[in-house]
């Protein structure tokens, strides 16, 4: 069963807590990735969106290691540099951190870039001044996206 929060989302993620510890493994990470080669959206941004959605849904916990770029690229049929660009973008946004010899792992659970959060706060303030409530604002955002 796949649960999606937004029907237009690129990355349907699976909400399921899988506890591997009872079977002896002390670490396990699982993740679904979805990219659309025929979409207008650039592939690195689609991969970035997959990671953000995974972190937001809890599928990727803080400290979990992401697949190496070469392996993920081969599975998704994209170039390795595409995945590296996505990882670098997430590193610059503070979502991932790179460790020498250990690959990329999730650094923090905050996934929204700071400029987006600031713009959203401005939007909320302006909407409040004009008398727009929360539901009106949500409807507006849904119309725009």
């Amino acid at each position: 069963m796949v649960t999606t929060m937004n029907p237009a989302a690129d990355c349907p993620v699976r909400f399921q807590a899988v506890d591997d510890r009872e079977n002896g493994a002390n670490n396990a990470s699982t993740m679904r990735w979805t990219v659309d080669h025929s979409s207008r959206e650039p592939l690195p941004l689609q991969i970035v969106a997959c990671v953000r959605q995974g972190v937001a849904s809890g599928e990727l916990a803080v400290g979990e290691q992401l697949p190496p770029a070469a392996e993920l690229a081969a599975a998704l049929s994209v170039d390795r540099n595409t995945v590296l660009a996505a990882y670098r973008r997430l590193r610059d946004d503070g979502v991932l951190e790179f460790r020498r010899g250990r690959g990329a792992r999730v650094a923090s659970a905050v996934t929204e870039p700071a400029p987006v959060t600031e713009a959203a706060q401005t939007l909320v303030a302006v909407a409040r001044r004009h008398g727009l409530g929360r539901h009106d604002l949500i409807r507006l955002i849904e119309r725009l996206t």
Partner: peptide, 11 residues
């Protein structure tokens, strides 16, 4: 062009 994949890591 949609590729939906699963990745997992067990240690």
């Amino acid at each position: 062009g949609r590729y939906s994949i699963y990745t997992g890591r067990a240690t």
